[in-house]
């Protein structure tokens, strides 16, 4: 455990040193604030609090940003150390390869955690202050923060998988961008395209919901937009999840699967790798 901390703290320090953390906090915080200011306009007839509205806009934003940040943090971490030659030395120290992966993972998740806490958390405090101390809808906001962390962790694990499979850093960078495009843009585009063409003929609501579960980003979106009533009504998406019988447990389990499978695969591939 102590060794894991040593490895994790190194990654965290690297994040602080190259201003990664600072930049991400600023980005997330600023966007959260801007969106919450813009979002406060339509309140009135709809039964939704300011925080509920900001959850919708922030969740839609996080779906793009968090995977991007996580992939940029992680794609280089193994292939980079192989290429520069630092991995050779590291593995002659009394650490197992599993510890190297887990330690790095902890460090990178901490970077995302700090960014989310400071960025979204800071924005939350400001919003509460602006709304005269009203904390209505904080649960949904908290869920949004926690699931954003999980989304980040998933894409860190996917980044590691890319990092351990490819031979060169440039390939890793390209593959990471590819992953991002597929999960954040292309898959949804395909899904909606199919839905439009289909006009509800063959693709039932059930199947559509199942297809959405295939992508971790869609799962994240459904989770945030459907669990709390205030949010789902404001988002007008209530039907999708409940109609398909998707509980929040199922959604979270799917996300956890998306985390565990790439991470263990990475560890297994790394285990076999010869230097």
């Amino acid at each position: 455990m102590r060794l894991l901390w040593v490895l994790a703290l190194k990654e965290l320090r690297d994040g602080l040193r190259n201003r990664w953390i600072a930049a991400t906090i600023l980005l997330l915080g600023a966007l959260a604030l801007v969106l919450s200011m813009l979002g406060s306009a339509p309140i009135g007839s709809v039964r939704a609090s300011a925080l509920d509205i900001s959850v919708i806009s922030l969740a839609s934003l996080s779906v793009y940003l968090i995977p991007l940040i996580a992939l940029m943090l992680s794609f280089d971490t193994l292939v980079g150390e192989f290429e520069r030659g630092t991995m050779l030395l590291l593995l002659t120290y009394p650490v197992t390869r599993g510890q190297v992966i887990l330690g790095k993972f902890m460090g990178h998740v901490m970077i995302i955690l700090v960014a989310i806490l400071a960025g979204y958390g800071g924005a939350l405090l400001i919003m509460i202050a602006v709304n005269g101390g009203s904390t209505e809808g904080w649960q949904a906001y908290l869920l949004m923060m926690l699931s954003s962390l999980l989304l980040g962790a998933i894409f860190i694990a996917l980044g590691y998988l890319v990092s351990v499979l490819v031979k060169e850093r440039a390939t890793a960078a390209g593959s990471a961008i590819g992953l991002w495009l597929v999960f954040v843009v292309l898959y949804d585009l395909l899904l909606f395209g199919a839905l439009m063409l289909d006009q509800g003929q063959m693709l039932g609501q059930q199947l559509f919901a199942m297809l959405m579960l295939v992508s971790p980003t869609d799962t994240y979106r459904i989770l945030n937009l459907s669990v709390f009533e205030g949010v789902s009504q404001a988002a007008g998406i209530a039907g999708v999840a409940s109609g398909a019988g998707m509980s929040s447990y199922l959604l979270i389990s799917v996300m956890l699967l998306w985390l565990i499978v790439p991470l263990t695969t990475t560890a297994l591939v790394f285990q076999r790798r010869e230097l």
Binding site: L3, L7, L89, L90, T92, Y93
Partner: peptide, 30 residues
Amino acid sequence: RKALGYLPESVAFYEAMTGREVLTFYARLK
């Protein structure tokens, strides 16, 4: 491996860290 020391050919370090930070990092691992 605590009892081993290795100096690789053309050794590579974490470039952004200072010499002391590098050595402290490895010291903690050992």
